[in-house]
Nucleic acid binder design. Sequence first.
DNA 1: CGGCTTATTGACATACGTCAACTATTGTGG
DNA 2: CCACAATAGTTGACGTATGTCAATAAGCCG
Lengths: 244, 244
Amino acid sequence: MGKLRERHNRRRRKGSMLDSDLASIRKIPLFVGLDASVIEEMLGRGFAQTEPKGARIFTQGEDARFLHVVLQGRLALVGRAADARDAVVEFFGPGDVVLVPAVLLDEPYQVAAVLMEESRLVYLRAADVRAQGHGCAEFARNLSLMLAGHWGLLVTQIMEHKLKTAPQRLATYLLEGAREAGGRLMVDLAVDKRSLASRLGMTPENLSRNLGQLERLGVRIAGRHVEIDDAKRLRAFCHDNRSS
Amino acid sequence: MGKLRERHNRRRRKGSMLDSDLASIRKIPLFVGLDASVIEEMLGRGFAQTEPKGARIFTQGEDARFLHVVLQGRLALVGRAADARDAVVEFFGPGDVVLVPAVLLDEPYQVAAVLMEESRLVYLRAADVRAQGHGCAEFARNLSLMLAGHWGLLVTQIMEHKLKTAPQRLATYLLEGAREAGGRLMVDLAVDKRSLASRLGMTPENLSRNLGQLERLGVRIAGRHVEIDDAKRLRAFCHDNRSS
DNA sequence: CGGCTTATTGACATACGTCAACTATTGTGG
DNA sequence: CCACAATAGTTGACGTATGTCAATAAGCCG
């Protein structure tokens, strides 16, 4: 729960969009099926920008001027309490669209966004997005579907917090992110452990200890690289309270 | 975290919609600004029904066949973990529309819904809702706005869980629900304390103790009726960790 | 290499859950 | 309307998970 520091916060300058950017954007569900004119209208007045690790893209309480699309990299939505401690709500990566709610409702951002690594983002003007949400039925529909998906993410997280212990939440997170490679299940944590701890609702110290505990369940940890020997056992551990 | 029991679960029979039902529905933000034909198309194939306290409207894992609108009463969204403990995600009351995400995505419900008191609900057929989400731009837009609003609720709850202690979450909940009446701030808890405890992420025992703790901060509790003598002090307590 | 940040480990404090007993409240049938 | 059972809520004693503080170790970058 330490404060996430922002090291660089240079004033951003508009960067023009590359063809590769446009190609990526068109594959994102929010933008599929739209008339070319609609996409162009939104993108035409937006821009793309690569920003360094630690950059604060926007701040809690700030007016929602842009809709952000992550092309590469990773960012964290960070909420800050009145006493200046803050918590990571969720991470977003390539293809994710961030903070549609604030943009649609034309409200201040409820949370801040901080880059976990150097990332390339698209900035779409909030007013344009709202206009298309109004004018283009297909876009409005895509927005709903995206929001519906996010709803599920948040509900899942709430339930995990209320029903699972810290080690169980950690194990669940690992299993969700795991990929099979060479007959082995493995995960590469995309973010530093301090932020991961915050996302999982525990202190960094406890994250360390909980990783240690999982090693006794056949999880091997080397820095940010994690290997899962016995996925079945780990899954059982997530569900059942009464495991060792 | 005890299990919410369902006492009555009679098979529901379709109930026709009353004029007063229609009047209520038209005032709900999700339905304002729609062509009369659109509303009629959705409502025409739906129905309204009054169901008793404890009724389980739908179950986790069930396919989303209906979109539910609360006309009167109160329901809880309840998630169940693998080990059969369950947690209240959120309460919904008159004017709220429940589980749009599952309906839109045509996915199974992620959570169940249980009535906290006798309630009158509208059942709209999921397929009809999806069709209008597709066909009617204004409805698609309203859906987005509603989902965006819900997103804020859930994010707030996640942050409170990560950043606040149980007594602080309780105090925050009381302040949010408080109404001014006769120069006094007061709340009437709409649900039983067991469910409230689950919503707030604590045990019923701890809810009792935490209410007791708040009494030392000028909160008077009598059953489900709560009076707040010093809102300023209570607010300070919510924000600051280091209060007595 | 040296300085900085990040991660780990240990000792300790505490908030919270658990279990069990008790009390209050609600509902129901006689 | 009362008596009784069932449920809901409270209280206390206690254990444990998790946070806190401090010191050490391990990466990372200039």
